[in-house]
Amino acid sequence: MTDNKGIFTLSLDTELAWGMFDKDNVGDYENAYRNTPDVVDHLCNMFDEYDISATWAIVSHLLMDCDKAHTDRTSPNFEWIDDWFAELPCVNGFDDVLWFAPWLIDRLQACETAQEIGLHGSTHMQLGADGCSRQHAEEEIDVAVKTLREHGLEPKSFVFPRNDVGHVDVLREHGIKVYRGRDAYWYERASVPNIIKPPCRFVDEAVRGTPPVTEPIEHNGILEIPGSQTFRPSHDGWQYTPGECSVERAKKGLERAARTGKTFHLWFHPFNLGHSPEKDCHRLERILMIVDELVREDLIKCVPMGEYSE
């Protein structure tokens, strides 16, 4: 990262039902989960067309057949769920499509443009929440890293479930070099009540606010790459903001990165595009077209998270 070009980084929280099972609302997203394989395929095709190397942060349990009761692990003491491992999607007999994706690694490695495969935990455990001890974090990260190694992968990057940062030292001890930090907005990084954050996010989206651009932050041997913008889906209330908001905001963020030589870090969950796949993939493609134009003008470059450590 020694030249003065701006940087575009794209990270994808790849989780299927693992992202919602502890909130007891998997059914609200079932159609989107079922559409996710097609969404992933479409994303891979777009990334090949526009030469985008993204970071796919995956919940490693997507690669594991749930044939045991996780008796070797201890459940965190979260206030919103009685027994973490007793409530896992696979334990409760959910449809395989919602929690098992053995095809995922092969599809990502088949992309013509190299894709980075990082981690989003083993079971999407919220590492920064009260009730997640260091032991819980060590078990979660140890299993996740070992699972990827069994597939011939050495993960460098990590995305914290729900962006709840905690036990960063455990990541470093397991060979992780880079993690995505909270988005670089005052209300995301300051100690403000969670109830304030959703309306602030909605206002930023509705008024087409320019996203922040950032630089890596070093923390005792591990790098934090803060987020800049979430690509909002046409669901969960975001359909009430104009559809052009995310595209216009990304354009502003990319142009700011080009001017300053800093990083514009876009991120989203692939399953969220499964509610309105054609509409949302088209909106995302418009952003990738802007990236492509700036790359051709030699103003920015596309860098996956793991490359920051190099």
Score class of each variant (00 low, 15 high):
244 E>H: 10
254 L>Q: 00
259 R>V: 13
220 N>M: 15
274 G>E: 05
257 A>W: 00
270 P>N: 01
231 F>C: 03
188 E>Y: 05
254 L>Y: 02
288 L>C: 03
185 Y>D: 12
200 C>R: 11
239 Q>D: 14
252 K>W: 07
220 N>W: 15
198 P>E: 06
269 H>P: 03
187 Y>V: 10
202 F>K: 12
188 E>T: 07
286 R>T: 04
235 H>P: 07
222 I>W: 12
290 I>W: 02
213 V>I: 08
278 E>Q: 14
253 G>H: 00
188 E>K: 09
286 R>C: 04
299 L>N: 11
277 P>N: 08
228 S>W: 03
279 K>W: 10
213 V>M: 04
234 S>Q: 05
229 Q>K: 11
263 T>L: 11
201 R>D: 09
255 E>P: 04
198 P>D: 04
258 A>T: 00
241 T>S: 15
223 L>V: 02
242 P>N: 13
269 H>A: 03
276 S>T: 10
243 G>C: 11
247 V>W: 06
266 L>I: 06
226 P>R: 02
231 F>K: 00
235 H>R: 12
300 I>H: 05
212 P>D: 11
212 P>N: 13
204 D>V: 13
265 H>W: 01
292 D>C: 02
247 V>R: 04
251 K>F: 07
271 F>H: 07
296 R>K: 15
266 L>F: 07
285 E>T: 00
234 S>L: 06
234 S>N: 08
186 W>S: 03
292 D>P: 01
251 K>Q: 10
290 I>V: 10
248 E>T: 09
219 H>Y: 14
195 I>M: 09
266 L>Y: 06
273 L>Q: 04
261 G>N: 10
221 G>K: 12
264 F>A: 01
214 T>P: 10
239 Q>P: 06
230 T>M: 13
253 G>A: 11
237 G>L: 06
211 P>T: 02
246 S>V: 14
222 I>E: 05
296 R>T: 14
293 E>M: 12
214 T>Q: 07
259 R>H: 14
273 L>R: 00
259 R>Q: 15
256 R>N: 07
254 L>F: 05
198 P>I: 09
278 E>G: 09
277 P>F: 09
247 V>L: 12
225 I>R: 01
285 E>N: 01
234 S>D: 10
275 H>W: 14
232 R>V: 13
220 N>T: 15
233 P>T: 01
231 F>P: 00
197 K>S: 09
278 E>W: 13
300 I>W: 01
272 N>G: 08
284 L>A: 00
241 T>Q: 12
298 D>N: 13
228 S>L: 04
188 E>M: 07
203 V>Q: 11
269 H>W: 03
262 K>N: 14
